[in-house]
């Protein structure tokens, strides 16, 4: 259209970016209190490759859906421009006590929120300044961009899967993904969208004395490994639709953290990609399967 000045927004990359606090702990960044002797290098090298890859793509904002901001009443969005504080992992407080300081793109959050409301989803802006940002968002945020120098949109994980079924969860997340995409395109901004979840999610129920003792780290069972490899294979061969089709079996049999909706939402924001994703890394964390994966939209879509 002649005379149009506003640039069209775009999703430049979509990522599966899991949030085990162990990875932050293993890195010994200044923001985290506990110190370690390293560990989980395969995954940390994977994140290094993802950061390297994203550094080459111009982007304005990171949009994260984390399974550790669990909401039962609708989907919520962080709705204030700035949050800071101390995040202590309630399950691994020995590993993760992280001082965070992050900015929110409230405008884009509100735009997604409004579109979701129009689409009939139950949504709410979170505007309480005392709110503590969940450790999933912070871990993924840190691993992707440790400087936190780009604003985030943070979306809660609606627990519809627990209330209804994986099918209902997927329906809602497909819709949320569509409106997220629309809002980003209309915003004129370049966004990276991130689903902060692991794959197979059976934990060990004991922890070694030295948490980073890598001689103890492996997948909890062969069945979990097979599931992870199956899903990763779909990602690498551009068969995202099959992931969505098999999500009910996957979440049930692999107790997958994708039951929080992040992966379905991510694939929906990318219009269920048929091009191959890049696997940056795979490894286990206390037995759970974690993959760092990037869909390089910029190379496949008109931007």
């Amino acid at each position: 259209m002649l005379g149009r000045t506003m640039a069209k927004g775009s999703i430049v990359a979509g990522c599966l970016a899991p949030h085990p606090p162990h990875l932050v702990y293993a890195e010994n960044p200044p923001q985290n209190e506990p110190t370690s002797e390293g560990g989980w290098e395969q995954l940390r090298w994977g994140y290094e490759r993802l950061r390297e890859s994203l550094s080459k793509i111009d982007h304005d904002v990171l949009v994260i859906l984390s399974p550790h901001w669990q909401t039962y009443v609708g989907t919520h969005f962080l709705g204030l421009p700035h949050f800071e504080g101390l995040s202590v992992d309630p399950i691994f407080p020995n590993l993760f006590r992280y001082s965070y300081n992050l900015d929110i793109d409230v405008e884009l959050s509100k735009a997604i929120h409004d579109k979701a409301a129009d689409a009939g989803l139950a949504v709410k802006m979170m505007e309480n300044p005392d709110f503590r940002v969940d450790y999933g968002t912070i871990t993924t945020g840190h691993m992707v961009n440790p400087a936190f120098d780009k604003p985030l949109v943070v979306i809660s994980s609606n627990r519809s899967r627990h209330y209804y079924s994986v099918e209902v969860m997927q329906e809602m997340m497909m819709e949320l993904g569509r409106v997220t995409r629309d809002a980003i395109l209309e915003s004129g901004k370049k966004a990276v969208v991130l689903a902060s979840n692991s794959l197979s999610h059976r934990h060990f129920t004991t922890e070694s004395d030295v948490p980073e003792d890598m001689s103890k780290e492996h997948i909890t069972s062969h069945a979990m490994h097979l599931w992870d490899m199956r899903i990763i294979d779909y990602m690498r061969t551009g068969q995202a639709q099959r992931i969505i089709d098999e999500m009910p079996e996957f979440t049930e049999q692999a107790i997958a953290e994708s039951d929080g909706g992040g992966l379905t939402w991510l694939l929906s924001t990318l219009t269920v990609p048929t091009y191959p994703a890049i696997l940056h890394g795979y490894g286990t964390i206390i037995g759970t399967g974690n993959a760092i994966v990037e869909w390089p939209c910029y190379a496949h879509e008109e931007v």
């Binding site: 669990q70 039962y72 709110f131 934990h203 922890e207």
Partner: peptide, 21 residues
């Protein structure tokens, strides 16, 4: 990892509910 027991003699913070903030 098993059960956890709070052992901070004086835990102090401000809690905001995840849903009912």
């Amino acid at each position: 990892i098993g059960h956890q027991i709070q052992a901070d003699p004086n835990p102090t913070w401000t809690l905001v509910d995840q849903d009912f903030h």
